[in-house]
């Protein structure tokens, strides 16, 4: 079956990203396909590569990147939500005249249309948030 996952909260403050991660992992384990994981609202903060959690804690952001690498997952940060919150890839940073970018490997910035498209393509859409 094809799944679309939506993550509406950032890492660490809420459990949403953890729950979404465990769900996605379990879905992949069961042989399902993940059409896309779409990060919205503060959820875009999951895509930073600058997070430095203590060593005895999980690394929420890296974990998504690794899962993406292992399974060719599409991790999409909503561009409008990301720009508001200072999440910029190299192109966006250049366009906005900013001195750096912060998107982790495996994440891409794209439009809200990707969320709707995922809902159309997938057999199931699951939302994780606060």
């Amino acid at each position: 079956m094809k799944f679309s996952i939506m993550v509406n909260e950032g890492p660490y403050t809420h459990q949403a990203s953890d729950s979404a991660y465990h769900f996605t992992e379990a879905a992949l384990r069961a042989g399902h396909q993940i059409v896309r994981v779409f990060f919205y609202h503060d959820g875009v903060n999951n895509g930073t590569r600058l997070s430095v959690p203590p060593q005895d804690d999980r690394n929420v952001c890296d974990r998504w990147s690794q899962l993406a690498q292992q399974h060719q997952l599409e991790l999409i940060l909503c561009v409008a939500a990301a720009q508001r919150r200072g999440m910029l890839d190299a192109d966006e940073a250049k366009r906005a005249g900013k001195d750096s970018n912060n998107i982790a490997p495996g994440f891409e910035i794209s439009g809200l249309g990707q969320l709707i498209d995922a809902g159309i393509q997938a057999d199931r859409t699951i939302v994780f948030g606060d």
């Binding site: 079956m1 992992e25 859409t125 699951i126 939302v127």
Partner: peptide, 14 residues
């Protein structure tokens, strides 16, 4: 979590 995934397949939508 495996059961969570299974439930989402058994019901039409969440």
């Amino acid at each position: 979590y495996d059961g969570f995934v299974k439930l989402t397949t058994e019901y039409d939508k969440t």
